[in-house]
Design a binder for these strands. Structure first.
Length: 486
RNA sequence: AGCGGUAUCGUCUAGUGGUCAGGACGGCAGAUUCUCAUUCUGCAAACACGGGUUCAAUUCCCGUUACCGCCGCCA
C-alpha cells in the first residue's frame, strides 16, 4: 500500500481562517490515523495578495492548534520547495509536455475578446464556455499574432482529454466523503493553465505540486469540487496516477452566509486574541461534520485521531455556533491548572498594576474569579475591583449601597470588622456569624452580603466574598466601607 | 440561467425498513450558594414537502422546494 500523504495548501492572502484550520485538522487526522505524512504548502502564486505577515500567521496558527506538519517551507522535506512562488521554474516543463501531446494549446484571445464571448453568452442566457477559437490556429497564424506583440496563454483541451480517457463526456470519481460524484465535462470549457505572463494558474499548479509531492489524498473544501474534474483530466493527460479526493462541507455563519468578519472572529488568531483556547477551537471545529463514536464530545486531537474515519464526515455544510464554542472554551479554561491559567491570563491583565498584590493574593484572586470565565479576556473586568484604592460603582451597586438597610449593615460591618483577624478561616467564620446576626434582624443573608459586596467592590455580583476581603485586605476594605457610608 | 451538492430539535449531530427518533450547545423551570456564575435535576424542541416501492418508510427511489457551492489569464 502506498504511503498516505496529505497536505494543506493555504493561500497567504489573509490570516489563517477557521475554515482552513478545520480542513487542516481533517487532513492532519487522516494522516495520523493512517500513519501518513502531513504536508504544508504555501500557495502564493498571486504575489499581489500575498504577504510575509500572513505567512507567519499561518505558521503560528497551525502550530498553536497543534497541527504540526511533517514537511513544509520551514522544515523542508524531500519534495521541496514547499512555497509555490519558489517553484515557478518547474511548471513550464509540464506545460510543454501537454502542448506536445496535444492536450493543451496556445490561446491568443485578448481580455476584450473573452469579455465579448461572455457577454454574448449571458445575453443568450447560455452558460459561458470558452469558444475554443484558438484551438486550431496554424503556425502562420500564431506567428502573425506573436508578431503583433501578443503573448499567448496556454489552455487545456478538456474535450480531447476526456475523449482520450473516457467513453462519454461524463467524468465520475469516488469522493472520500461524498461518494460518487459526476459531471459533464463538455460544460467545463478549456481553462487556462498558464497565464500569458508565464505564471501557472491555480488548477495547474496544484496538480503539478500534488503530483511531485506525491500527495495520495486531497482533502479540501467542497468549493473545489468542480476544479476536481479539471484536475483529474490533467493528471490523466500527464499520464500520472490520480490521487483520491475528499470534499468537506463548508462552515457557514449563523445567518447561513459565508463566515466573515462581521460575524465576529474568523481567523484563528482573532479567536486567540479574544480569549479562546486553541484546544477548545480545534475540538469545536472537529465536531463540525464529525461525531465521536462514543458520544463524548470533549476530546483532544489525539483522541479524535484514534476515532477518526473520513467516510463518517457529514457531507453537508455546518453552521458555526459561537455559543457552543464558548461553552467548550469555559470547559477548557476549567481544565487548566492555576499556573497555566495565570500564564494565559497575563495578556488580559496588563492594565493593572500587579505589584499591588502578593503572589498568594494574586493566586487567590484568580482562584476565586476563574469559575465564570467563558473567555480568557473576561478576566479583565472580573478582577477590576481588586486594584486601586477607590471603588467604581455600577448601577446596581450604587442602588444597593444607598438603601437604609445597607447603610445599617455597613455601619455594623465596619464596627465589627475592625476587630477581626484577617485570614481566610476567621473571615469565613465571622461573616457567617455576621449574616446570622442580621438574619435575626429580619435581613436575608443575601441582602446583608449585598451591602458589603457593593461597598467593597461596587457591584452586587462577583467572586467569593471571603476571598475578596482577604485579597483586598483589612485596611482597604474598611476604607471602602467607610466611604460608602452617607 | 446552467451544472454539482446537501436536507433529523434553533444549532452541531446519533440512528434505524417496524425506535417512546438518542446526545450536546442554547432556551425554559426548579434545587444548591452570600450575589452572579458553577454544579445538579427536570421540561419544551426535529425526521422539509409530494409521489412511489413495501405489510410497514425518517430510513430506499423519483420529483418539488429551500439552502450552499461552481461557472476567472483568483486561489
Amino acid at each position: 500500500m502506498e504511503e498516505v500523504r496529505v497536505r494543506i495548501a493555504p493561500s497567504p492572502s489573509g490570516n489563517l481562517h477557521v475554515g482552513t484550520a478545520r480542513t487542516a485538522l481533517f487532513n492532519y487526522l487522516f494522516a495520523k490515523k493512517n500513519n501518513g505524512k502531513f504536508v504544508l504548502r504555501i500557495e502564493d502564486t498571486d504575489a499581489e495578495r500575498t504577504s510575509q505577515e500572513y505567512i507567519d500567521n499561518i505558521f503560528d496558527s497551525l502550530k498553536a492548534l497543534g497541527l504540526n506538519w511533517d514537511e513544509g517551507p520551514d522544515v523542508g522535506g524531500p519534495y521541496g520547495p514547499y512555497t509555490q512562488s519558489e517553484r515557478f521554474d518547474i511548471y513550464p516543463k509540464y506545460v510543454q509536455q501537454l502542448l506536445d501531446s496535444g492536450f493543451a494549446y496556445e490561446c491568443f484571445c485578448t481580455p476584450e475578446e473573452l469579455e465579448a464571448e461572455k457577454a454574448e453568452a449571458t445575453a443568450n442566457k447560455k452558460p459561458y464556455v470558452y469558444s475554443k477559437k484558438c484551438e486550431n490556429l496554424t503556425e502562420d497564424e500564431k506567428a502573425k499574432l506573436i508578431a503583433e506583440g501578443r503573448k499567448p496563454a496556454i489552455r487545456f483541451n478538456i474535450a480531447k482529454a476526456q475523449r482520450a480517457f473516457h467513453d462519454s463526456s461524463i467524468l465520475e470519481f469516488e469522493d472520500l466523503v461524498k461518494g460518487k460524484l459526476h459531471m459533464d465535462t463538455d460544460l467545463l470549457g478549456d481553462f487556462v493553465i498558464q497565464k500569458s505572463n508565464g505564471a501557472p494558474t491555480y488548477n495547474f499548479a496544484v496538480v503539478i505540486d500534488d503530483m511531485l509531492m506525491k500527495i495520495s489524498h486531497v482533502i479540501r473544501g467542497e468549493d473545489h469540487i468542480s476544479n476536481t474534474y479539471k484536475q483529474i483530466l490533467i493528471y490523466e493527460a500527464l499520464g500520472v496516477p490520480v490521487p483520491r479526493f475528499g470534499h468537506l462541507g463548508m462552515i457557514l455563519a449563523p445567518d447561513r452566509s459565508k463566515l466573515s468578519k462581521r460575524h465576529g472572529a474568523t481567523a484563528v488568531s482573532d479567536f486567540v486574541k479574544e480569549g479562546y483556547l486553541t484546544d477548545a477551537l480545534i475540538n469545536f471545529v472537529a465536531l463540525l461534520g464529525w461525531a465521536p463514536s462514543d458520544g463524548e464530545e470533549l476530546k483532544s486531537v489525539d483522541e479524535i485521531a484514534a476515532d477518526f474515519r473520513i467516510g463518517e464526515i457529514s457531507s453537508s455544510n455546518s453552521i458555526f455556533e459561537y455559543d457552543k464554542l464558548k461553552w467548550m472554551n469555559s470547559h477548557y479554561i476549567k481544565q487548566l491548572s492555576l499556573e497555566e491559567l495565570e500564564e494565559r491570563l497575563k495578556p488580559y491583565l496588563e492594565k493593572y498594576d500587579l505589584s499591588e498584590l502578593s503572589k498568594e493574593h494574586f493566586d487567590k484572586m484568580i482562584e476565586i474569579t476563574r469559575e465564570p470565565l467563558t473567555l480568557l479576556s473576561d478576566i479583565t473586568d472580573a478582577v477590576e475591583y481588586f486594584f486601586g484604592d477607590g471603588v467604581n460603582f455600577d448601577e446596581s451597586g450604587k442602588e444597593t449601597i444607598e438603601t437604609e438597610t445597607s447603610q445599617n449593615v455597613l455601619k455594623d460591618f465596619i464596627e465589627k470588622a475592625e476587630t477581626w483577624e484577617w485570614n481566610e478561616e476567621n473571615l469565613h467564620e465571622k461573616l457567617e456569624v455576621f449574616r446570622g446576626y442580621w438574619k435575626e434582624q429580619g435581613i436575608k443573608p443575601k441582602v446583608t452580603m449585598w451591602a458589603v459586596r457593593a461597598a467593597v467592590t461596587g457591584r452586587t455580583r462577583g467572586a467569593d466574598m471571603v476571598g475578596i476581603l482577604e485579597v483586598i485586605g483589612k485596611d482597604k476594605t474598611l476604607a471602602r466601607a467607610k466611604s460608602a457610608l452617607k
